[in-house]
Design a protein around this nucleic acid. Structure first.
Length: 489
DNA sequence: CCTTAGCCTG
DNA sequence: CAGGCTAAGG
Protein backbone atom coordinates (compact mmCIF):
# COMPACT_ATOMS: atom_id res chain seq x y z
CA UNK A 1 0.00 0.00 0.00
CA UNK A 2 0.99 3.53 -0.47
CA UNK A 3 2.12 5.08 2.77
CA UNK A 4 1.82 8.61 1.59
CA UNK A 5 -1.63 7.98 0.39
CA UNK A 6 -2.49 6.40 3.64
CA UNK A 7 -1.25 9.45 5.38
CA UNK A 8 -3.39 11.69 3.36
CA UNK A 9 -6.41 9.65 3.71
CA UNK A 10 -6.07 9.10 7.38
CA UNK A 11 -5.72 12.76 7.82
CA UNK A 12 -8.98 13.65 6.30
CA UNK A 13 -10.88 10.44 6.35
CA UNK A 14 -10.94 8.25 9.35
CA UNK A 15 -10.94 4.65 8.57
CA UNK A 16 -14.25 3.34 7.49
CA UNK A 17 -13.99 0.90 10.28
CA UNK A 18 -14.89 3.73 12.55
CA UNK A 19 -17.35 5.65 10.53
CA UNK A 20 -18.63 7.39 13.58
CA UNK A 21 -15.37 9.26 13.82
CA UNK A 22 -16.38 11.19 10.81
CA UNK A 23 -18.78 13.13 12.93
CA UNK A 24 -16.10 14.11 15.35
CA UNK A 25 -13.79 15.73 12.89
CA UNK A 26 -15.75 16.12 9.79
CA UNK A 27 -14.24 17.40 6.62
CA UNK A 28 -15.09 20.92 5.75
CA UNK A 29 -17.67 19.79 3.29
CA UNK A 30 -19.52 17.73 5.80
CA UNK A 31 -22.09 20.14 7.00
CA UNK A 32 -24.35 18.13 9.12
CA UNK A 33 -25.11 14.66 10.12
CA UNK A 34 -28.80 14.09 10.07
CA UNK A 35 -29.92 11.42 12.32
CA UNK A 36 -30.40 8.19 10.62
CA UNK A 37 -33.99 7.09 10.81
CA UNK A 38 -33.81 3.55 11.87
CA UNK A 39 -35.90 1.29 9.86
CA UNK A 40 -39.22 0.88 11.55
CA UNK A 41 -41.31 -2.20 11.32
CA UNK A 42 -43.15 -2.57 8.15
CA UNK A 43 -46.35 -0.73 8.41
CA UNK A 44 -49.28 -2.71 7.29
CA UNK A 45 -51.77 -0.67 5.51
CA UNK A 46 -55.38 -1.47 5.42
CA UNK A 47 -58.14 0.32 3.74
CA UNK A 48 -61.81 0.05 4.34
CA UNK A 49 -63.76 -2.55 2.49
CA UNK A 50 -67.12 -0.96 2.26
CA UNK A 51 -66.95 -1.35 -1.44
CA UNK A 52 -66.40 -5.03 -1.26
CA UNK A 53 -69.84 -6.05 -0.25
CA UNK A 54 -71.21 -4.10 -3.13
CA UNK A 55 -68.80 -5.72 -5.48
CA UNK A 56 -69.48 -9.17 -4.28
CA UNK A 57 -73.17 -8.59 -4.28
CA UNK A 58 -73.16 -7.46 -7.82
CA UNK A 59 -70.78 -10.13 -8.86
CA UNK A 60 -73.05 -12.76 -7.53
CA UNK A 61 -75.95 -11.29 -9.35
CA UNK A 62 -73.98 -11.13 -12.49
CA UNK A 63 -72.88 -14.66 -12.14
CA UNK A 64 -76.34 -15.87 -11.57
CA UNK A 65 -77.46 -14.12 -14.65
CA UNK A 66 -74.59 -15.54 -16.52
CA UNK A 67 -75.31 -19.03 -15.35
CA UNK A 68 -78.92 -18.84 -16.22
CA UNK A 69 -78.32 -17.83 -19.74
CA UNK A 70 -75.37 -20.01 -20.41
CA UNK A 71 -76.64 -23.13 -18.79
CA UNK A 72 -77.31 -24.62 -22.15
CA UNK A 73 -73.77 -24.03 -23.23
CA UNK A 74 -71.69 -24.70 -20.22
CA UNK A 75 -71.58 -26.79 -17.17
CA UNK A 76 -73.17 -25.44 -14.08
CA UNK A 77 -69.81 -24.83 -12.59
CA UNK A 78 -68.64 -22.95 -15.56
CA UNK A 79 -68.34 -19.87 -13.47
CA UNK A 80 -65.54 -21.40 -11.56
CA UNK A 81 -63.37 -21.71 -14.54
CA UNK A 82 -64.60 -18.38 -15.64
CA UNK A 83 -63.06 -16.64 -12.74
CA UNK A 84 -60.26 -19.04 -12.27
CA UNK A 85 -59.05 -18.59 -15.76
CA UNK A 86 -59.10 -14.90 -15.38
CA UNK A 87 -55.67 -14.55 -14.07
CA UNK A 88 -54.50 -10.99 -14.02
CA UNK A 89 -51.70 -12.20 -16.14
CA UNK A 90 -53.98 -12.17 -19.07
CA UNK A 91 -54.25 -8.50 -18.84
CA UNK A 92 -52.87 -6.54 -21.68
CA UNK A 93 -50.66 -4.85 -19.26
CA UNK A 94 -48.67 -1.84 -20.13
CA UNK A 95 -45.82 -3.18 -22.10
CA UNK A 96 -44.37 0.20 -21.51
CA UNK A 97 -42.82 -0.38 -18.18
CA UNK A 98 -39.60 -0.47 -19.99
CA UNK A 99 -40.45 2.14 -22.52
CA UNK A 100 -38.70 4.83 -20.66
CA UNK A 101 -38.44 6.85 -23.77
CA UNK A 102 -42.12 7.57 -23.70
CA UNK A 103 -42.00 9.10 -20.31
CA UNK A 104 -40.27 12.36 -20.69
CA UNK A 105 -40.62 15.75 -19.20
CA UNK A 106 -41.28 15.77 -15.56
CA UNK A 107 -43.31 18.53 -14.14
CA UNK A 108 -41.03 20.39 -11.79
CA UNK A 109 -42.74 18.67 -8.97
CA UNK A 110 -45.57 21.05 -8.58
CA UNK A 111 -46.32 21.34 -4.91
CA UNK A 112 -49.85 22.21 -5.66
CA UNK A 113 -51.82 19.12 -6.18
CA UNK A 114 -55.09 19.07 -7.90
CA UNK A 115 -56.70 15.75 -7.45
CA UNK A 116 -55.28 12.78 -5.76
CA UNK A 117 -55.35 9.72 -7.87
CA UNK A 118 -54.75 7.63 -4.88
CA UNK A 119 -58.15 6.71 -3.67
CA UNK A 120 -59.21 3.42 -5.00
CA UNK A 121 -61.90 4.10 -7.48
CA UNK A 122 -65.35 2.83 -6.92
CA UNK A 123 -66.32 1.90 -10.37
CA UNK A 124 -69.54 0.15 -9.69
CA UNK A 125 -72.75 1.68 -10.64
CA UNK A 126 -75.20 1.40 -7.82
CA UNK A 127 -77.83 0.86 -10.38
CA UNK A 128 -76.22 -2.22 -11.65
CA UNK A 129 -78.79 -4.47 -10.14
CA UNK A 130 -81.73 -2.99 -11.94
CA UNK A 131 -79.67 -3.09 -15.01
CA UNK A 132 -79.36 -6.80 -14.86
CA UNK A 133 -82.96 -7.68 -14.66
CA UNK A 134 -84.41 -6.22 -17.77
CA UNK A 135 -81.96 -7.31 -20.32
CA UNK A 136 -81.70 -10.74 -18.92
CA UNK A 137 -85.37 -11.32 -19.35
CA UNK A 138 -85.48 -9.80 -22.75
CA UNK A 139 -82.58 -11.63 -24.23
CA UNK A 140 -83.41 -14.22 -26.77
CA UNK A 141 -81.51 -17.21 -27.92
CA UNK A 142 -79.22 -15.14 -29.97
CA UNK A 143 -78.22 -13.20 -26.93
CA UNK A 144 -77.42 -16.35 -25.08
CA UNK A 145 -75.34 -17.51 -27.91
CA UNK A 146 -73.46 -14.29 -27.94
CA UNK A 147 -72.86 -14.34 -24.28
CA UNK A 148 -71.54 -17.81 -24.66
CA UNK A 149 -69.23 -16.57 -27.33
CA UNK A 150 -68.01 -13.88 -25.05
CA UNK A 151 -67.17 -16.45 -22.49
CA UNK A 152 -65.19 -18.19 -25.10
CA UNK A 153 -63.38 -15.00 -25.78
CA UNK A 154 -62.57 -14.63 -22.15
CA UNK A 155 -61.39 -18.16 -22.01
CA UNK A 156 -59.24 -17.62 -24.98
CA UNK A 157 -57.73 -14.55 -23.46
CA UNK A 158 -57.06 -16.40 -20.29
CA UNK A 159 -55.35 -19.21 -22.06
CA UNK A 160 -53.18 -16.95 -24.11
CA UNK A 161 -52.39 -13.91 -22.07
CA UNK A 162 -51.74 -10.95 -24.30
CA UNK A 163 -49.09 -9.56 -22.04
CA UNK A 164 -48.52 -11.25 -18.74
CA UNK A 165 -46.68 -8.56 -16.92
CA UNK A 166 -48.90 -7.98 -13.98
CA UNK A 167 -46.72 -8.00 -10.98
CA UNK A 168 -48.58 -6.77 -8.02
CA UNK A 169 -52.03 -8.22 -8.07
CA UNK A 170 -51.92 -7.31 -4.51
CA UNK A 171 -54.20 -8.25 -1.77
CA UNK A 172 -57.40 -6.34 -1.72
CA UNK A 173 -56.80 -5.31 1.81
CA UNK A 174 -60.24 -6.45 2.69
CA UNK A 175 -62.32 -9.52 2.85
CA UNK A 176 -60.51 -12.77 2.38
CA UNK A 177 -63.50 -14.53 1.02
CA UNK A 178 -62.86 -18.14 0.53
CA UNK A 179 -66.33 -18.42 -0.81
CA UNK A 180 -68.40 -15.98 -2.70
CA UNK A 181 -71.31 -16.42 -0.38
CA UNK A 182 -69.36 -15.55 2.70
CA UNK A 183 -69.46 -11.94 1.71
CA UNK A 184 -68.70 -9.20 4.13
CA UNK A 185 -67.03 -10.62 7.13
CA UNK A 186 -65.52 -7.38 8.14
CA UNK A 187 -62.23 -8.69 9.33
CA UNK A 188 -59.87 -6.13 8.12
CA UNK A 189 -57.42 -7.18 10.71
CA UNK A 190 -56.24 -9.84 8.35
CA UNK A 191 -53.14 -7.94 7.52
CA UNK A 192 -51.08 -9.81 9.99
CA UNK A 193 -48.29 -10.17 7.51
CA UNK A 194 -49.48 -13.66 6.95
CA UNK A 195 -49.19 -13.50 3.27
CA UNK A 196 -46.08 -14.02 1.36
CA UNK A 197 -45.12 -11.28 -0.96
CA UNK A 198 -47.13 -12.28 -3.96
CA UNK A 199 -44.91 -13.42 -6.72
CA UNK A 200 -48.11 -14.14 -8.55
CA UNK A 201 -48.38 -15.77 -11.88
CA UNK A 202 -49.46 -18.83 -9.99
CA UNK A 203 -53.07 -17.90 -10.00
CA UNK A 204 -53.78 -20.24 -12.80
CA UNK A 205 -52.19 -23.08 -10.99
CA UNK A 206 -54.16 -22.58 -7.85
CA UNK A 207 -57.23 -23.35 -9.81
CA UNK A 208 -58.95 -20.46 -8.21
CA UNK A 209 -61.32 -22.72 -6.38
CA UNK A 210 -59.71 -23.79 -3.19
CA UNK A 211 -57.67 -20.90 -2.06
CA UNK A 212 -56.35 -21.78 1.31
CA UNK A 213 -54.12 -18.96 2.22
CA UNK A 214 -55.62 -15.58 2.69
CA UNK A 215 -53.26 -14.50 0.01
CA UNK A 216 -55.02 -16.53 -2.55
CA UNK A 217 -58.28 -15.32 -1.23
CA UNK A 218 -57.22 -11.80 -1.82
CA UNK A 219 -56.03 -12.53 -5.26
CA UNK A 220 -59.26 -14.21 -6.07
CA UNK A 221 -61.20 -11.32 -4.80
CA UNK A 222 -59.13 -9.03 -6.89
CA UNK A 223 -59.88 -11.10 -9.89
CA UNK A 224 -63.46 -11.01 -8.92
CA UNK A 225 -63.49 -7.28 -8.90
CA UNK A 226 -61.89 -7.14 -12.27
CA UNK A 227 -64.31 -9.60 -13.71
CA UNK A 228 -67.17 -7.83 -12.14
CA UNK A 229 -66.19 -4.71 -13.91
CA UNK A 230 -65.83 -6.58 -17.11
CA UNK A 231 -69.26 -7.99 -16.71
CA UNK A 232 -70.57 -4.54 -16.25
CA UNK A 233 -68.94 -3.48 -19.47
CA UNK A 234 -70.31 -6.42 -21.32
CA UNK A 235 -73.75 -5.80 -20.01
CA UNK A 236 -73.56 -2.24 -21.11
CA UNK A 237 -72.50 -3.30 -24.55
CA UNK A 238 -75.18 -5.87 -24.87
CA UNK A 239 -77.81 -3.48 -23.83
CA UNK A 240 -76.70 -1.16 -26.52
CA UNK A 241 -76.59 -3.84 -29.12
CA UNK A 242 -79.79 -5.60 -28.33
CA UNK A 243 -81.93 -2.73 -27.39
CA UNK A 244 -81.07 -1.22 -30.63
CA UNK A 245 -82.07 -4.43 -32.23
CA UNK A 246 -85.33 -4.83 -30.43
CA UNK A 247 -86.46 -1.31 -30.81
CA UNK A 248 -85.38 -0.33 -34.21
CA UNK A 249 -86.73 3.15 -33.88
CA UNK A 250 -84.20 4.09 -31.30
CA UNK A 251 -84.21 7.70 -30.40
CA UNK A 252 -80.68 8.60 -31.15
CA UNK A 253 -81.55 12.22 -30.87
CA UNK A 254 -79.95 12.42 -27.50
CA UNK A 255 -76.54 12.73 -28.94
CA UNK A 256 -75.34 15.18 -26.42
CA UNK A 257 -74.29 12.59 -23.96
CA UNK A 258 -70.65 12.01 -24.16
CA UNK A 259 -68.46 10.86 -21.38
CA UNK A 260 -64.83 11.48 -20.98
CA UNK A 261 -62.78 11.32 -24.07
CA UNK A 262 -60.36 8.51 -23.99
CA UNK A 263 -56.86 9.55 -23.43
CA UNK A 264 -53.93 9.35 -25.71
CA UNK A 265 -52.67 5.82 -25.94
CA UNK A 266 -55.94 4.33 -24.93
CA UNK A 267 -57.57 6.16 -27.73
CA UNK A 268 -55.34 4.72 -30.34
CA UNK A 269 -55.59 1.28 -28.90
CA UNK A 270 -59.27 1.54 -28.74
CA UNK A 271 -59.77 2.65 -32.28
CA UNK A 272 -57.22 0.35 -33.72
CA UNK A 273 -58.62 -1.73 -36.46
CA UNK A 274 -61.87 0.10 -36.69
CA UNK A 275 -63.14 2.74 -39.03
CA UNK A 276 -61.55 5.99 -38.29
CA UNK A 277 -64.83 7.77 -38.06
CA UNK A 278 -65.88 5.55 -35.26
CA UNK A 279 -65.46 7.25 -31.97
CA UNK A 280 -66.20 4.92 -29.17
CA UNK A 281 -66.87 6.27 -25.82
CA UNK A 282 -65.17 4.92 -22.81
CA UNK A 283 -67.45 2.21 -21.58
CA UNK A 284 -65.90 2.56 -18.24
CA UNK A 285 -66.84 6.13 -17.75
CA UNK A 286 -70.23 5.45 -19.10
CA UNK A 287 -70.85 2.66 -16.76
CA UNK A 288 -69.81 4.56 -13.75
CA UNK A 289 -70.90 8.03 -14.34
CA UNK A 290 -73.88 7.48 -16.47
CA UNK A 291 -76.13 6.02 -13.87
CA UNK A 292 -78.66 3.55 -15.19
CA UNK A 293 -77.94 2.63 -18.72
CA UNK A 294 -81.25 3.51 -20.18
CA UNK A 295 -81.80 4.49 -23.73
CA UNK A 296 -81.43 8.10 -22.86
CA UNK A 297 -77.83 7.52 -22.16
CA UNK A 298 -77.13 5.84 -25.40
CA UNK A 299 -75.69 8.59 -27.43
CA UNK A 300 -74.95 8.66 -31.08
CA UNK A 301 -71.51 7.33 -30.46
CA UNK A 302 -73.00 4.16 -29.19
CA UNK A 303 -75.32 4.11 -32.05
CA UNK A 304 -72.39 4.15 -34.36
CA UNK A 305 -70.86 1.34 -32.42
CA UNK A 306 -73.91 -0.84 -32.68
CA UNK A 307 -74.27 0.16 -36.26
CA UNK A 308 -70.77 -0.93 -36.86
CA UNK A 309 -71.37 -4.21 -35.18
CA UNK A 310 -74.41 -4.84 -37.25
CA UNK A 311 -72.65 -4.17 -40.47
CA UNK A 312 -69.71 -6.23 -39.40
CA UNK A 313 -71.17 -9.13 -37.47
CA UNK A 314 -68.16 -11.23 -38.14
CA UNK A 315 -65.96 -8.76 -36.34
CA UNK A 316 -68.08 -8.51 -33.31
CA UNK A 317 -66.12 -11.06 -31.38
CA UNK A 318 -62.96 -9.23 -32.06
CA UNK A 319 -64.53 -6.03 -30.98
CA UNK A 320 -65.74 -7.53 -27.77
CA UNK A 321 -62.36 -9.02 -27.18
CA UNK A 322 -60.82 -5.64 -27.63
CA UNK A 323 -63.29 -4.16 -25.25
CA UNK A 324 -62.34 -6.72 -22.72
CA UNK A 325 -58.68 -6.19 -23.28
CA UNK A 326 -59.08 -2.51 -22.95
CA UNK A 327 -61.04 -2.86 -19.77
CA UNK A 328 -58.62 -5.24 -18.23
CA UNK A 329 -55.74 -3.08 -19.23
CA UNK A 330 -57.14 0.08 -17.85
CA UNK A 331 -58.29 -1.66 -14.72
CA UNK A 332 -54.82 -2.87 -13.98
CA UNK A 333 -53.15 0.31 -15.05
CA UNK A 334 -55.51 2.43 -12.97
CA UNK A 335 -54.28 4.13 -9.64
CA UNK A 336 -53.84 0.96 -8.03
CA UNK A 337 -50.12 0.70 -8.35
CA UNK A 338 -46.91 2.59 -8.85
CA UNK A 339 -46.64 4.53 -12.02
CA UNK A 340 -43.74 5.89 -13.96
CA UNK A 341 -44.35 9.15 -12.24
CA UNK A 342 -43.84 7.49 -8.93
CA UNK A 343 -40.61 6.12 -10.27
CA UNK A 344 -39.43 9.55 -11.27
CA UNK A 345 -40.37 10.85 -7.92
CA UNK A 346 -38.50 8.07 -6.18
CA UNK A 347 -35.42 8.79 -8.22
CA UNK A 348 -35.48 12.42 -7.30
CA UNK A 349 -35.96 11.48 -3.70
CA UNK A 350 -32.80 9.48 -3.98
CA UNK A 351 -30.93 12.75 -4.20
CA UNK A 352 -31.89 13.22 -0.59
CA UNK A 353 -32.14 9.76 0.84
CA UNK A 354 -30.31 6.65 -0.20
CA UNK A 355 -31.81 4.60 2.55
CA UNK A 356 -35.38 5.72 3.01
CA UNK A 357 -37.13 4.24 5.94
CA UNK A 358 -40.44 2.56 5.59
CA UNK A 359 -42.33 5.43 7.04
CA UNK A 360 -40.58 7.86 4.77
CA UNK A 361 -41.82 5.80 1.88
CA UNK A 362 -45.21 5.63 3.44
CA UNK A 363 -45.51 9.33 3.87
CA UNK A 364 -44.07 10.26 0.53
CA UNK A 365 -46.06 7.75 -1.43
CA UNK A 366 -49.29 8.19 0.39
CA UNK A 367 -51.20 8.40 -2.85
CA UNK A 368 -50.83 4.73 -3.55
CA UNK A 369 -52.16 1.74 -1.73
CA UNK A 370 -49.11 0.84 0.26
CA UNK A 371 -49.57 -2.85 0.31
CA UNK A 372 -46.66 -5.05 1.16
CA UNK A 373 -46.17 -5.69 -2.48
CA UNK A 374 -46.05 -2.03 -3.34
CA UNK A 375 -43.83 -1.34 -0.39
CA UNK A 376 -41.49 -4.08 -1.46
CA UNK A 377 -41.41 -2.62 -4.90
CA UNK A 378 -40.50 0.76 -3.55
CA UNK A 379 -37.80 -0.74 -1.41
CA UNK A 380 -36.53 -2.61 -4.39
CA UNK A 381 -36.42 0.57 -6.37
CA UNK A 382 -34.16 2.24 -3.88
CA UNK A 383 -32.10 -0.86 -3.68
CA UNK A 384 -31.63 -0.67 -7.41
CA UNK A 385 -30.85 3.01 -7.15
CA UNK A 386 -28.18 2.31 -4.61
CA UNK A 387 -26.75 -0.45 -6.69
CA UNK A 388 -26.30 1.81 -9.64
CA UNK A 389 -24.98 4.55 -7.40
CA UNK A 390 -22.31 2.40 -5.82
CA UNK A 391 -21.34 0.80 -9.06
CA UNK A 392 -20.66 4.20 -10.49
CA UNK A 393 -18.74 5.17 -7.40
CA UNK A 394 -16.50 2.17 -7.57
CA UNK A 395 -15.98 2.60 -11.25
CA UNK A 396 -15.00 6.22 -10.98
CA UNK A 397 -12.89 5.63 -7.93
CA UNK A 398 -10.86 3.05 -9.77
CA UNK A 399 -10.70 5.30 -12.74
CA UNK A 400 -9.35 8.07 -10.59
CA UNK A 401 -6.51 5.86 -9.50
CA UNK A 402 -5.83 4.85 -13.05
CA UNK A 403 -5.84 8.48 -13.98
CA UNK A 404 -3.06 9.08 -11.50
CA UNK A 405 -5.00 10.78 -8.79
CA UNK A 406 -2.79 10.08 -5.82
CA UNK A 407 -4.47 12.01 -3.10
CA UNK A 408 -7.97 11.73 -1.83
CA UNK A 409 -7.90 15.48 -1.64
CA UNK A 410 -8.00 15.52 -5.37
CA UNK A 411 -11.05 13.39 -5.43
CA UNK A 412 -14.02 15.62 -5.87
CA UNK A 413 -17.45 15.55 -7.37
CA UNK A 414 -18.78 18.64 -8.99
CA UNK A 415 -21.62 19.30 -11.32
CA UNK A 416 -19.34 19.17 -14.30
CA UNK A 417 -17.87 15.87 -13.24
CA UNK A 418 -18.38 12.86 -15.38
CA UNK A 419 -19.60 11.01 -12.39
CA UNK A 420 -22.26 13.54 -11.69
CA UNK A 421 -23.28 13.51 -15.28
CA UNK A 422 -23.81 9.78 -15.11
CA UNK A 423 -25.75 10.01 -11.89
CA UNK A 424 -27.85 12.86 -13.09
CA UNK A 425 -28.59 10.99 -16.24
CA UNK A 426 -29.82 8.11 -14.24
CA UNK A 427 -31.89 9.78 -11.57
CA UNK A 428 -32.80 12.97 -13.30
CA UNK A 429 -32.80 12.15 -16.95
CA UNK A 430 -35.08 14.95 -17.90
CA UNK A 431 -32.63 17.21 -16.14
CA UNK A 432 -35.45 19.36 -14.95
CA UNK A 433 -34.66 19.06 -11.31
CA UNK A 434 -32.08 21.03 -9.39
CA UNK A 435 -29.96 18.46 -7.69
CA UNK A 436 -29.25 19.64 -4.16
CA UNK A 437 -25.70 20.51 -3.28
CA UNK A 438 -25.86 18.11 -0.44
CA UNK A 439 -26.08 15.25 -2.88
CA UNK A 440 -22.89 16.42 -4.49
CA UNK A 441 -21.25 16.34 -1.11
CA UNK A 442 -22.51 12.89 -0.34
CA UNK A 443 -21.43 11.68 -3.72
CA UNK A 444 -18.00 13.11 -3.16
CA UNK A 445 -17.72 11.45 0.20
CA UNK A 446 -18.80 8.19 -1.31
CA UNK A 447 -16.31 8.44 -4.08
CA UNK A 448 -13.58 9.27 -1.64
CA UNK A 449 -14.52 6.34 0.54
CA UNK A 450 -14.24 4.05 -2.40
CA UNK A 451 -11.02 5.65 -3.41
CA UNK A 452 -9.58 5.15 0.03
CA UNK A 453 -10.73 1.60 0.39
CA UNK A 454 -9.40 0.65 -2.98
CA UNK A 455 -6.16 2.43 -2.28
CA UNK A 456 -5.80 0.51 0.94
CA UNK A 457 -6.56 -2.68 -0.91
CA UNK A 458 -9.52 -3.28 1.28
CA UNK A 459 -11.38 -4.47 -1.74
CA UNK A 460 -9.69 -7.78 -1.27
CA UNK A 461 -12.21 -8.35 1.46
CA UNK A 462 -15.37 -9.70 -0.06
CA UNK A 463 -17.44 -7.46 2.14
CA UNK A 464 -15.32 -4.39 1.87
CA UNK A 465 -18.23 -2.30 0.66
CA UNK A 466 -20.20 -2.87 3.78
CA UNK A 467 -18.19 -0.33 5.71
CA UNK A 468 -18.75 2.23 3.01
CA UNK A 469 -22.43 1.54 2.97
CA UNK A 470 -22.57 2.15 6.64
CA UNK A 471 -20.90 5.51 6.26
CA UNK A 472 -23.13 6.61 3.47
CA UNK A 473 -26.26 5.43 5.17
CA UNK A 474 -25.69 8.07 7.80
CA UNK A 475 -25.68 10.86 5.29
CA UNK A 476 -29.31 10.84 4.37
CA UNK A 477 -31.10 14.13 4.36
CA UNK A 478 -34.71 14.91 4.94
CA UNK A 479 -36.75 14.81 1.82
CA UNK A 480 -38.39 18.16 1.16
CA UNK A 481 -42.01 18.29 2.04
CA UNK A 482 -42.89 19.18 -1.51
CA UNK A 483 -42.40 15.58 -2.39
CA UNK A 484 -45.29 14.64 -0.24
CA UNK A 485 -47.67 16.16 -2.70
CA UNK A 486 -49.51 13.39 -4.43
CA UNK A 487 -48.78 12.89 -8.05
CA UNK A 488 -51.40 14.52 -10.15
CA UNK A 489 -50.84 12.77 -13.38
C1' DC B 1 -41.28 -17.23 10.09
C1' DC B 2 -41.13 -12.98 7.68
C1' DT B 3 -38.64 -9.03 5.87
C1' DT B 4 -34.88 -6.77 3.81
C1' DA B 5 -30.09 -5.79 1.82
C1' DG B 6 -27.27 -7.09 -1.49
C1' DC B 7 -25.75 -9.65 -5.46
C1' DC B 8 -26.48 -11.45 -9.98
C1' DT B 9 -29.02 -11.95 -13.94
C1' DG B 10 -32.02 -10.90 -17.88
C1' DC C 1 -35.84 -2.21 -13.29
C1' DA C 2 -37.73 -6.88 -11.86
C1' DG C 3 -36.81 -11.78 -10.33
C1' DG C 4 -34.50 -15.03 -8.03
C1' DC C 5 -31.60 -16.24 -4.42
C1' DT C 6 -28.93 -15.93 -0.03
C1' DA C 7 -27.73 -14.17 4.30
C1' DA C 8 -28.91 -11.65 8.17
C1' DG C 9 -31.98 -9.70 11.74
C1' DG C 10 -36.31 -9.07 14.43
Amino acid sequence: MNPSLLDHSMHHFPSSTYPEDRAEHPPSFLHDNRYNPSTPPTSSHSSGGSLISTLLQKTIESKQTLQESTAAYYHPDAHISFSALTSPSLVDHHSSTSSKSSSTTMEPLSPASQASTGASPTRVSPNGAGLNQDWTLELGDRRQAKRARVENIIRGMAVSPPSPSVHCTDEGETTPTSDLQSETMENKQENKRKQRVPQHQDLLRTGGASGKSTDEGHNLKKQLQTMQRLLGQLQARFIQVYEYQTESEEDVSDGTFSTGVMEDDHQSTWNKGYPETEVFMDPYSEFNNGGPLDRGHLGWKNYKLTDYIHSNPDKEDKLLADILKYELSRAVNSSEGLTTHHLKKAKLMFFYTRYPSSNVLTTFFSDVQLTRCIMSQLIKWFSNFREFYYIQMEKFARQARVDGVNSVRDVAVRRDSELFRALNMHYNKANDFQVPDRFLEVAEITLQEFYISISLARDSDPSWKKAIYKVISKLDSDVPAEFKAPLTT
